[in-house]
Amino acid sequence: MNRRTFHRAPEAERREDLITATLDCIAELGIQGATVRQIATRAGVTGGLIRHYFASKDLMMQDAYREVMRMMSAPAFAAADSPGTARDRLIRFIVGNLTPPVTDARMLSLWAAFIGHIRVEPAFAAIHRENYVAFLSVLQDLLQAFFEEQGKPLAADTCRHHAIALNGLIDGLWLEGTLVSDMFHDHELADTAILSVERLLGLNPGDLVAPIRT
């Protein structure tokens, strides 16, 4: 296990460094294997410093899961807020969910380490629910803007139903694509998602076209 050089830094940065070390340990060893001692060694600090920032290992793991959710959602949220038409932003949103870094093997390892805790630990369930609600809200707003741009405005409830369906589609492709990544060529997941979204939304073939690859 590599040992980080822990430098003097503002409080927020130190906390971020500890979360990064925690995620590194979880990706390699799982939650049970990611002990405070292992995390301290990876971060290059003492266990006492970790306890200064986190009152318990449970709270540290909860913050680590929040960071995993943030990393998985960040490319899609950035796409939704990016310049361009609603159509362009919708395409970027889909692509961002199904290309690296979201589809990296490390991200799958982290997701798999945490997912079993959601059903049995209320704190993890609350974090998951908060992220899901935010993700769904962003996607619903993006779909509403897209259909308004097309001159075919839809009711909020209809956009919500579409958002739920699209989220399920993206999740399924992400899971299969990261579990057996060698079966897919570059951008195949994203391109497949775009074709599927066209059908799901009742669009014409080619209404959503993936960005030009460079």
Rank of each mutant, 00 (worst) to 15 (best):
D81P: 04
L173Q: 02
R92H: 11
P83G: 14
L173T: 02
G172H: 10
V120W: 10
H162V: 01
E130M: 07
V95K: 04
E130Q: 14
L166I: 13
H162K: 06
G177C: 08
T85E: 11
W111T: 11
R160D: 13
V138Q: 03
A156C: 11
P153M: 10
A165Y: 00
D141L: 11
F77R: 15
E149R: 04
G96P: 05
G116Q: 08
R199A: 13
P83T: 13
F93W: 12
Y132T: 12
D182L: 10
F147T: 01
T99M: 10
E121R: 15
E149M: 07
V95G: 02
A123L: 05
S196E: 01
W174R: 14
H117S: 10
I91N: 02
I91K: 01
Q140C: 12
Y132L: 12
D207P: 00
V120Y: 12
L201A: 07
A145L: 09
G116S: 11
A86M: 03
N204T: 13
G168W: 05
A165V: 03
A105C: 05
S181G: 12
I170Y: 01
A125C: 10
T103I: 10
A105W: 07
L203C: 04
F146D: 01
D171E: 15
G177E: 05
F114V: 03
D171F: 15
N204P: 00
D104S: 14
R89M: 04
L143A: 06
R119L: 12
I94M: 06
V120Q: 13
P122K: 08
E148P: 01
P122F: 04
D81G: 14
R106K: 14
R89P: 03
N204L: 12
Q140A: 13
W111E: 10
S137D: 14
L110F: 08
L175E: 15
K152L: 15
V197R: 00
H185F: 12
A105I: 07
L143E: 03
D157F: 09
N167L: 02
H161F: 10
H117F: 06
D182P: 00
K152T: 15
E130T: 09
L169A: 08
I115V: 13
V197D: 02
V197N: 00
S196D: 00
R119Q: 14
F184R: 00
M107F: 03
H128M: 13
G96H: 04
H128C: 09
A190T: 02
H185R: 15
V138I: 10
A105M: 12
E149H: 08
L166S: 05
D141E: 12
N131M: 09
T85D: 11
D104R: 04
T99S: 11
